[in-house]
Design a protein around this nucleic acid. Structure first.
Lengths: 186, 186
DNA sequence: GCGTCAGGCTATTGGCATTAGCCTCATCGC
DNA sequence: GCGATGAGGCTAATGCCAATAGCCTGACGC
């Protein structure tokens, strides 16, 4: 391998910084190239297209998220684990709001796999509830949906007067835990 | 007013059809102009920019959604109203998945206002719970987040093996209702 | 030393948003 | 009726961006 410098990972690094600082709309190959100190076409030696860069960024984000929530549930179980997981998830999004709004659901299998790693952590955290397989999947989907919805709305500033969002989130956590604790099929 | 033909509303009509049929990525002024049988620059007599078209589309969608869920809660209250509202929300998204993924949180005030109309229906549906003002806002945010998260993930096909999503959604409804029924601050 | 090829580059194409400025005809005051 | 006016269409042009083609170079293996 000759001259070092660029690589697929390095391109994604630059893309991530760009997203953090200027938002997902600023993620163009031209901007990445400028930041990397390189001409735009040079990027094509490392990535196939802008769409691929976006997918790679999404994978990176989901992996970071999976790691954060995975760490959070270590040594905890049931309600305790769910609370920690939800707190960690939101904390990540609050730290990197633009990053979170850059997430795309690309058709690339790598993106789906990263999503499954996140769901894997969720399923592990739910294991202590002793749910049947299908019920565990339902529960994981609900937790994911609730947290994702809240995080996204917060990240894109869709809540008017974002005061006391902590309290709102506490209620969401309460809802999830209460729903998991009580029988699901009345 | 001379020749009829185009108008801001007509442009948005075309944009909506485009989104429904080809997805949000296909929403370009060039494509709208072609469908409208007009040259691209002509659109600027009716809209200021592509960004404005996207915002107007978002407003249209949120208004449709507000109407649908508003209808659903008529004559119902408390758990019954929430269940109907959540069912109607998801039904709308399942009917028009691409439309829902075209939603953007633009800075334009019109978009924020449309969002508030949706939240207004939510608050009305929650009235029967007799929550304090702040608690009602928290509850509305949570319901919105949960439904929005689920709907978005479903619309963008982010759930792997989307079998039995109805059951998953039933659990989400259960969580919301259970969380609203039990005391929020233990 | 020398060939090779990874990884840069320039040049080019084509799509798109946006702006400037023209042209026309339906309407309205007279 | 009739001429001014302006809404609403148009063509032309600019600039940005993604993507492709094809060239060039220097680090490394031999």
């Amino acid at each position: 391998m000759p001259r070092a410098a660029l690589s697929t990972d390095a391109v994604v690094d630059v893309a991530m910084r760009l997203v953090d600082e200027e938002g997902p709309a600023a993620l163009t190959l031209a901007a990445v190239a400028t930041r990397a100190g390189v001409a735009t076409p040079s990027l094509y030696k490392h990535v196939r297209s802008l769409a691929e860069v976006r997918a790679l960024v999404s994978v990176r984000i989901m992996d970071e998220l999976a790691e954060r929530i995975g760490e959070a549930v270590l040594g905890r179980s049931a309600d305790d684990a769910i609370r920690a997981l939800m707190a960690a998830w939101r904390a990540y999004v609050v730290e990197h709001p633009r990053r979170y709004t850059a997430l795309v659901q690309a058709p690339e299998p790598a993106v789906a796999e990263a999503g499954e790693r996140v769901v894997g952590v969720l399923l592990a955290a739910l294991r202590a509830y002793g749910l049947e397989d299908a019920d565990a999947v339902h529960a994981a989907r609900c937790v994911r949906a609730a947290v994702h919805g809240f995080a996204l709305l917060e990240a894109e500033r869709a809540f008017q007067r974002p005061e006391r969002l902590d309290e709102s989130y506490a209620l969401l956590v309460h809802m999830v835990v209460a729903g998991l604790r009580t029988p699901a099929h009345p």
